[in-house]
Amino acid sequence: MKKLSKADHLKIFSYMLKIRRFEERSAQLYGMGHIGGFCHLYIGQEAVVVGVLMTIKKNDSVVTTYRDHGHMIARGLNPKKIMAELTGRSDGYSAGKGGSMHMFSKENNFYGGHGIVGAQVPIGTGIAFTHKYNGDKNICRTYIGDGAMNNGQVFEAFNLAALWQLPVLYIIENNKYGMGTAVDRAAAGSHLYKRGEAFGIKGEILDGMNVYSVIKAAEKAGEYVRSGKGPYILEVQTYRYRGHSMSDPAKYRTKDELEKYKNSDPIEIVKEEILKKKIASKKELEKLNKEIIEEIKSAVDFALESNFPSSEELYTDVYI
């Protein structure tokens, strides 16, 4: 693993914090009725996407599930436009037509935000196919929830990716529950990454609460895939603090279990590392936190001041 600079540590901290603060604010806006429909929060899982972010190249592609707010922030997208989309405004990334689950930014090679469990896996494999077809040496990172790992099209995509040696890095975000069903009640066999073995796809399992272990594994896996050896699977063990969506009280798990994970909070781990290495003081980190709170506040203001799409917009973007 490349040595992380001081700036890297601070980047990691601020991105993770930005996702946390953004999601907390999203929950608040949902409660106030500004965000509607389904809204899936990323709180607790921040180390996964930010760890991967540290290994990504500008022209690499990303495709993910409907739990996508954190992914967009980590891709460097503008929180104002994300929040505008969540609140259904015309300034949102999808002009108010996608919402929380369906957000895209082509110019940033972010291909969604997909609402159908598992559908993003063949799509991400197809984006990787294009990288290979074009010979551009870029790769596609395709995120998969643990729930999707029981969906047939995922294995069809694995087969194709291995058969055609496509540059796709599959990242399973195993947050232990597919909606309310625990992984061991849904998936036969042991670890999810081992399901690639049947196709000859290598993989590994890692601690997704610790961003440094994510960076280490993602870097190695990214290099493997970029070198033309075909797909690779990372199973990242993580945990969502909130329910599956805003309307889920998460009664299928114990308070103790939740507390256990909160005690190894991914942001706290980074904070401790920064303090231990004397990269920044507590005070400086608190200042950073305040700046992020302000940034998210201004994103909310921007969103709520933005217009709703005009009625003409109903009929645009069906065809080009």
Binding site: P122, G126, E156, A157
Partner: peptide, 11 residues
Amino acid sequence: HGFTGLAVGAA
């Protein structure tokens, strides 16, 4: 299902 999704991603 797999190759159609792959083709959609390529498109």
